[in-house]
Design a protein around this nucleic acid. Sequence first.
RNA 1: GUGGCCGUAGCUCAAUGGUAGAGCUCCAGGUUGUGGUCCUGGCUGUUGCGGGUUCGAGUCCCGUCGGUCACCCCA
Length: 425
Amino acid sequence: MQPLPGFRDFLPDDCAQRDYITTQWRRSAKCYGFVEFDGPALESAELYEKKNSGGEILSQLYSFRDRGERSVVLRPEMTPTLARIIGSHHRSFLKPLRWFNIGHCYRYEKPQRGRLREFLQLNCDLLGESSPAADAEVIGLLIDIFKSVGLGPRDVVIRLSDRLVWQQFLQDHDLPDEKMREILHIVDKIEREPQSKTEEKLAACSSSLSVKMLQQFIKEAKAPSLAPLLQELSARGLRDYIQVDLSIVRGLAYYTGVVFEAFSLQGGLRALAGGGRYDHLIHHLSDGAANMPAVGFGMGDTVLLDFITSIPSAAEKKASYLAANAPCQIYLVIADETYREEAIMLASQLRREGWRVLFPLSTERVSKQFSNAQAARATLAIVIGAEWPLLKIKHLNTREEEEITPEHLFKKLAGELQSRQGTFP
RNA sequence: GUGGCCGUAGCUCAAUGGUAGAGCUCCAGGUUGUGGUCCUGGCUGUUGCGGGUUCGAGUCCCGUCGGUCACCCCA
């Protein structure tokens, strides 16, 4: 039996790596005062129909009828759920809200690498504040997440743009607002499509615009509205990560202002995260129950993990986290079965103090026990045998051995635990 | 949804149309209380599945399922 197409099993090693990602996500989000929320994976289909009035989107939804004949959908993204929750609970919270979520989302598409039908996503949203300071907080958080996993300005870039700039562009060329969506779609593709196709699409949309004019406008990258945001990012020391790029407009219809995408600079340009400002969506999705400006972003786990693994310094950082969180810290070697009971008592005591401890469940040769200790990636072995009531401890990395009393052992470990506490809370 | 490539042991892969194999992993040993090496032995298959061609198919053909890459799409 295999999992369904586009779904994955997570073996312990996969879980450990995912734990690394989600731990860094949580840590960074909390540093910015974001609080975690969650909602159901299964939602009413109505929630998504409202936003996208039917069409193709629905065919990419995991949708079905439940036993109560309700039309239901596995959430394809978090934002509608967030908007729904905000709509009915926003009066209970002081504004602005800083909320984040880590959860599985689903889409019924043909699976390929980094694009499965079930994926884990981080969403961070700042609601109820329309100033550029809010944009800067959110983008600052995004960058700090990259920093936390060892990615620097040589590894990732945030391409920043503003839809208001394009709105102004349309006005300056006497084009109606209705053309906005079409033009943005063309801009979105301008890098990826051959010029002839872009020209064709542009001609169908407007007679007064040329591809050259668009390209020139993008090249000039004049975006005065972004100045306050850029200033805030400079104050955070994050300007190195930012590149103003007006060709970034994002595919989604609901963005109203600042939009941004994070890309990998090495190993081909891959989108690692994306987001922007959506000032009307909450109002729309909550049926007017709430009305507040919002800015946020989403980031998937698989592409990020792939990328981290391909960057040596980031891979090293991941490896040291995994080593520090190995399944076993202390392995008790029972060299003489006579002392099994003493060993069990010692193990229990160590476990009560929070150490990850293993010992052989049945009689094993000492050489086998050391072998197992290493396989479990323990850093310390404690041999219990003839020297009792003394213990022989062996540092498995340095192979150094010493004999100490149990009391001394606990004192030593207590110091160790304290000094490590700052490393991985 | 469209097209290309690929499906052989748990993993990585061999096998001119002619008896399905290797390495790694795993398990058990190498007699006294010390772990990445080494030596010995052992387990593992409906060759993804279903048809067809052939004396004979892992190999050729068709279908199907799954994987992968590129489009499409991206909430």
